[in-house]
Design a protein around this nucleic acid. Structure first.
Lengths: 204, 204
DNA sequence: CCATTAAGTCACCGGGCGTTGACTAGCGGC
DNA sequence: GCCGCTAGTCAACGCCCGGTGACTTAATGG
């Protein structure tokens, strides 16, 4: 038996960090309501009471988790001309445990339990939409940023809610390609993200 | 006082229907976990025990609600050439209480409480994705259908999670216009939904 | 080597949930 | 005008949750 394998050296700071990591992982995979203090504590190997002690309340812990996510900043960091391709592949193919979009997953899962959503609203607006719109830049940046974000989120929802895409590998590839093009056009501000017939805000 | 205003005539069938409607409304506005049997019963004006009696369990009730949603069939019914515009305006501007996308809202809210999501997965695949992909038709219909669905869902998520779009009316209008174009191109199978530079799956 | 202090545990509370079995009240048939 | 049947209510159960105060145990400094 592997009982008491590692009695975990007594170190408040490290334990606190471990709890935070476990919580982030849990909240990315299950919803706010489904994640219990006892679950998180169990992942780390401590008592649930300790989680309450260190973070105050479940809401406070959730807020700390939100703050600990790098909300997609690294996606904006790379080469701008490959943004569409990079993001499309990330959201369509990347394993859930990969870190880049963990904040996005948490955001999606928070569409429940009104409390969690309020916290996410503030965090997302301040820490993601603002910077993203600014990074997109150009004419009607907020509009194009929100459209791009919507496509990204929607694809993530599809994947979560359907548990995969129910398509073969070739179809997934072509879907990623098309998504890449749409995203890239959106952030580049190409003529209305498609052939513009002239009716819609033709110039920048 | 308006106590006992309408003692509700004794009619099992009507009461059952009223419960189902109230439940659909609730599940569209709050998550599976946040909606309680007592809430639903309260909306109708009956005891919570009756809800359990009529529908067996909360899961059974939820499943009945899913079956009672017309999953966007009417969106496909109209003129195909105005699909993009109709849907974009519906998802961006329509009041939540409007019925057409109620199934979509429930789907979004179900991204919690693993139980609800499993039920929604089955229902959505069978009753929405299949028919929608078929309706879209043409080359790689499932791929384009999923892209369009992703954009629609993502925009709904944005609206839900941010509680509006945080933009002025003009920006919302332009966003709806751009979204309409993207959607329309997707279901029309226009060259890669944007000007195709030839690198990506150039032909049909 | 022991006292002190912080790290971690344990038992327990109050509350809300879904669900159940016993009960009450309104309606149709004789 | 009573009877039986069923729609609907009531009280309660068991369960699990988040949170708290009292306790135990490990590390540390003199």
């Amino acid at each position: 038996m592997f009982c008491h394998v590692a009695p975990r050296p007594r170190n408040a700071e490290a334990t606190r960090a471990a709890i935070l990591n476990a919580a982030r992982e849990r909240f990315a995979r299950e919803s706010y309501d489904d994640v219990g203090m006892r679950d998180i504590a169990g992942d780390v190997g401590v008592d649930a009471a300790l989680v309450s002690r260190y973070f105050g309340s479940k809401e406070d812990l959730f807020e700390a988790v939100l703050d600990s996510c790098d909300n997609g900043a690294d996606l904006m960091a790379g080469d701008r001309s490959t943004f569409g391709r990079r993001v499309a592949r990330e959201v369509i193919f990347q394993a859930k445990s990969e870190s880049k979009l963990k904040g996005l997953l948490i955001l999606l899962r928070s569409i429940s339990s009104t409390k969690a959503m309020e916290l996410v609203q503030r965090s997302a607006n301040r820490r993601f939409y603002g910077p993203f719109a600014e990074w997109v830049g150009g004419h009607d940046a907020p509009v194009r940023a929100r459209l791009a974000a919507a496509l990204i989120k929607g694809m993530a929802v599809t994947r979560e809610v359907t548990g995969g895409y129910g398509m073969d590998a070739g179809q997934c590839e072509r879907m990623a390609d098309q998504m890449a093009v749409i995203l890239q056009d959106l952030i580049d501000g190409e003529p209305a993200a498609a052939q513009d017939d002239g009716k819609l805000s033709p110039a920048a």
